[in-house]
């Protein structure tokens, strides 16, 4: 019991001593913390961007409308009937019929090709249906499109789900790249902390030697450095979370402006609480690991002379 209390007391002392040591060299500590923070903010920030792109993708997929061009000789009544048939399907949310005469009028008004159209005999435009499927999944959209394509009045179904698939593939690629960047930068953080601890070990070699001489165990000697690494990692990770939040704050107004232009209520999401926790805990663990590597490598080299 007494030895456990002693052990815990030592740990608490090491923890506080390490923090004091960081505070005693504010400039050098701040530099190291900043390097760690930037190395951690990069993958965290990229992760946020990919998350947001994913959310954007989801919201687009829900509106995977497709266009159905009916055959040119389909009458107004038949077009209306086809629209009702498709609209009656359980997997279709709604169908809008664009009457060929109305379409021509609109085209004449908006395209500036009025004179060219006058040169044509009759209306070259077919009736068009805009179909909005109910479910967001690309496969279901495909099923609706196939059924519509099978109808005798249908000339062409213009289904552009390819871009959705492509976007999703690109997001997967981006996600994987962020994973790789995370691994590489985690290694970088470990090395940065390890190197800082190595310098610290060198500058405290006299103390290490004396502690060894009066019977300090390897664990006793290692602990202050492990806690130092822990603090570097923890403070660096918290700074990284702050950097990401600040970057998002700076991006918010222009993103809102773009979203408004597209008539979208899209909002930039920050780092979720769970991922923030992973970042902070991960940073502390990486700092600890870097210190551990440095002590494992360099403490044995310092023996009493």
């Amino acid at each position: 019991m007494a030895s456990l209390r002693h052990y815990l007391t030592l740990h608490r002392q090491n923890l506080l001593d390490a923090l004091r040591r960081l505070a005693s060299q504010p400039f050098a500590s701040a530099l190291t913390v900043l390097v760690i923070a930037i190395a951690l903010a990069l993958p965290a920030g990229l992760r946020v961007l990919v998350n947001n792109a994913g959310a954007l993708n989801d919201s687009w997929e829900g509106a995977a409308d497709f266009a159905v061009y009916l055959k040119i000789d389909v009458s107004n009544e038949n077009a209306a009937r086809v629209a009702r048939t498709i609209g009656g399907r359980p997997d279709v949310a709604n169908v809008t019929l664009i009457d060929r005469a109305k379409a021509l009028e609109e085209f004449r008004a908006k395209s500036g090709f009025g004179d060219a159209l006058d040169a044509l005999e009759g209306n070259p435009l077919p009736h068009t249906l805009v179909v909005r499927p109910k479910s967001g999944a690309a496969g279901d959209v495909e099923a609706v499109a196939a059924a519509v394509r099978a109808m005798p009045e249908t000339d062409l179904v213009q289904l552009d789900t390819a871009w959705v698939t492509r976007l999703r593939a690109m997001l997967a690629l981006a996600g994987r790249m962020v994973d790789l960047a995370t691994v590489l930068l985690a290694i970088a953080v470990t090395i940065v902390v390890g190197n800082t601890i190595r310098l610290e070990i060198n500058s405290r070699s006299v103390e290490i030697e004396v502690v060894k001489l009066v019977g300090g165990s390897d664990g006793f000697i290692r602990r202050p450095f492990l806690y130092l690494g822990f603090w570097y990692g923890l403070v660096g990770a918290i700074a990284a979370a702050v950097i990401v939040a600040a970057a998002l704050l700076a991006l918010e107004p222009p993103v809102r402006a773009v979203a408004n232009l597209y008539g979208s209520g899209f909002e930039l999401a920050g780092l979720p609480l769970r991922e923030t926790a992973v970042l902070v805990v991960g940073g502390a663990v990486l700092g600890w690991a870097g210190a551990w590597l440095a002590t494992a490598r360099h403490l044995r080299a310092i023996e009493p002379k």
Partner: peptide
């Protein structure tokens, strides 16, 4: 380490921290 804890050592250069 436990062996050295039972041994007192004095150095010419004190080795104080």
């Amino acid at each position: 380490p436990p062996f050295r804890q039972r041994l007192g050592v004095v150095f010419q250069d004190h080795k104080l921290l």
